[in-house]
Amino acid sequence: MESEIQAADVGAWSPQEYLPTLRALLAAAEVSDQLEFQNQLDKLTALREQRLFQEIGRLTRQLHDALTSFQSDSRLLEVAGSEFPDARDRLDQVIEMTERSAHRTMDLIETAIPLAEQLQDTTAGLASRWQRFRARELSADEFRELVAEIGDYFTATDDRSRQLRARLSDILMAQDFQDLSGQEIRKVIRLVQDVEKTLLNMIKVAGRGESIEAELTEKKTSEETDWNKQRVSGQDEADELLSSLGF
């Protein structure tokens, strides 16, 4: 902070600082006062040298700052040494977690589908006989059979819907990966932001801060627009493009 203020002071010099000396120099020249002219000229040179030394001092300070901040930025070491591998592990875990959940969900669905199909089949079979009963087409024996089957149907349906319900709630539970993987991904995002900031700071200290930042922003915006322009929005646009290619 201190060096910044000093640098700002040094930077804000004005040619007007030279005016009194220049006037005295001019006056001495006009009256041909050789001694005075020599004195004022020396003073002018001293002034110029002082500015030069100040400038060199500013650059030296900047270099010193850059070097110390580079050395003291153990953050980079941490990042490269342990946090990047850690982030990689986290992302691997996310893949594992999502994969496990997806398989668990599909397992449950695959066992639930036959249950639903059985329900559908038994109901359809009973319904057709129920129609015949309503149309008075069933014999007494067939009717007794139907009544017994309806009794079984109630028990089986109760059992199957319980099982279905249990599968559905297990499917619900299998979605817990979203929360957990979200937390891991967020940690990695924070690390990436951290690294971005550290890198930008280093560039700033090296004295190219503003131009680089402007360059980056410009690049980012133009890349975003390109990305949007190049991508199709979905199957319909893909089909359109393909049909224009003769598909």
């Binding site: 190049q230 991508r231 199709v232 979905g234 893909a238 493009l241 393909l242 290619l245």
Partner: peptide, 8 residues
């Protein structure tokens, strides 16, 4: 992969 150039 839904980039136009990729589909092409």
């Amino acid at each position: 992969e839904a980039k136009r150039e990729q589909i092409i």
